[in-house]
């Protein structure tokens, strides 16, 4: 729990963070969190390398350091829920569909990818798992997610919508329209704002009067909670409670998770001192708040995990990354004849 007094410090690189409180969470859940975050981390580091050495052609927006958010939220979801992402969405899709081969194939532009090689890193979808699309137009999917929630309400399915967005997206007008419409129509949608304090190169303090955005939820009478975005357990607890309530009674909620991306806005560089208010010192401080290590440490501290088990998990993740990457590398590109396919659903 972050108290009101904590808000000011949560986004501060020098914030003294507490040990993770993992009480009353099933051990299998904790192990799942650890595995899922580790896979996402390793996958993105692999993608960063491949981008650097030219194997990946299109831009990649990496979320290393932010894994806890998607992992904590996804644990509450079912395949019939409707999830929408944005430009930095590798973790969002992997959170519900851990098919590394499909992610790697997609970023390499292969026809076996999540979007049959037609999307690349910025356009990901996994329909069967409820991940209905991520796109790089900032805030572009936010109203779509509201509509997905509206559909669910009309279908009386009990399914919910998840809209992942960043702090920059809260500066677009349609974000505010979407919150208002979701509230006034009682739409079951959870807005998950990953506030990593930067939009491209610009720090929040240069774009908004406050470094947090949950005031926008309050303005639209939407229940909200500010959480430590690098605490997977806190994210899981908060989203779990909101989602439980949404399934019973359709209503919007908003979680603001404060976090930090270890890479720059796009591709593999750290963007230290090339952006505005992003320093090496800040990055090192934020790395101390590593969501994976914090969970592992807390589990070891509680004697439900060991250094040896952690070592084995890391080895397993490495193998997974290697096998799936090699497989994707050898897959085919889309057939050149498919250029005009799927412009329309029927031709």
């Amino acid at each position: 729990m972050i108290s009101d007094g904590g808000k000011k410090v949560l986004e501060d690189p020098n914030y003294i963070f507490a040990k993770l409180n993992i009480s009353q969470i099933e051990h299998s859940y904790l192990e799942d969190f650890l595995m899922s975050m580790s896979v996402i981390r390793a996958a993105e580091i692999k993608i960063a390398e491949a981008k650097k050495n030219g194997l990946i052609k299109g831009p990649v927006h990496l979320g290393v350091g932010q894994e806890a958010i998607a992992v904590g939220v996804s644990k509450n979801l079912r395949n019939t829920d409707r999830i929408f992402g944005a430009h930095r969405s590798h973790s969002h899709v992997l959170g519900v569909d851990n098919d590394l081969h499909k992610l790697f194939a997609e970023v390499l532009g292969k026809n076996t990818g999540f979007s049959s090689g037609m999307g690349g890193s910025m356009h990901l979808a996994s329909k069967s798992k409820g991940f209905l699309g991520s796109v790089p137009i900032v805030t572009g999917t936010v109203p779509l997610a509201v509509g997905a929630g509206l559909a669910s309400k009309l279908q009386k399915s009990g399914d919910i919508a998840i809209s992942y967005l960043g702090d920059g997206a809260t500066e677009e007008g349609v974000f505010h329209e979407s919150l208002n419409f979701a509230r006034v129509s009682n739409i079951p949608i959870l807005f998950v704002v990953e506030n990593n304090l930067f939009s491209s190169h610009m720090h929040m303090s240069l774009r908004q009067p406050l470094n947090t955005i949950n005031r926008f939820a309050k303005a639209h009478e939407i229940e909200t909670k500010l959480v430590d975005g690098n605490d997977v357990v806190e994210i899981y607890r908060t989203s779990s409670e909101f989602i439980r309530r949404m399934r019973l009674k359709p209503e919007p909620y908003l979680i603001e998770a404060i976090t930090y991306r270890w890479f720059g806005h796009v591709d593999w560089r750290e963007d230290i001192d090339v952006g505005v208010a992003r320093s090496k010192k800040d990055l090192l401080n934020w790395k101390k708040r590593d969501p994976i290590k914090r969970l592992s440490d807390a589990m070891i501290n509680k004697k439900i995990w060991t250094i040896e088990k952690q070592h084995n998990l890391d080895l397993k993740v490495d193998e997974l990354i290697h096998a799936n990457w090699e497989k994707a590398l050898h897959d085919d590109f889309p057939d050149r004849k498919s250029l005009l396919d799927n412009v329309y659903k029927y031709d």
Binding site: R82, F84, L132, G133, G140, T141, V142, P143, L144, A145, V146, G147, A148, G149, L150, A151, S152, L154, Q155, A161, G173, V174, E177, S178, N180, F181, V184, S185
Partner: peptide, 28 residues
């Protein structure tokens, strides 16, 4: 009024919502 929805003055969000609902099996 559940199926015939008069909306706030928000062309952008409401059109986006129609698009999103259509992706989820509705015909808005």
């Amino acid at each position: 009024k559940d199926r015939i929805i008069d909306t706030p003055v928000s062309e952008s969000a409401c059109t986006g919502a129609a698009v999103g609902a259509s992706i989820c099996g509705m015909k808005p």
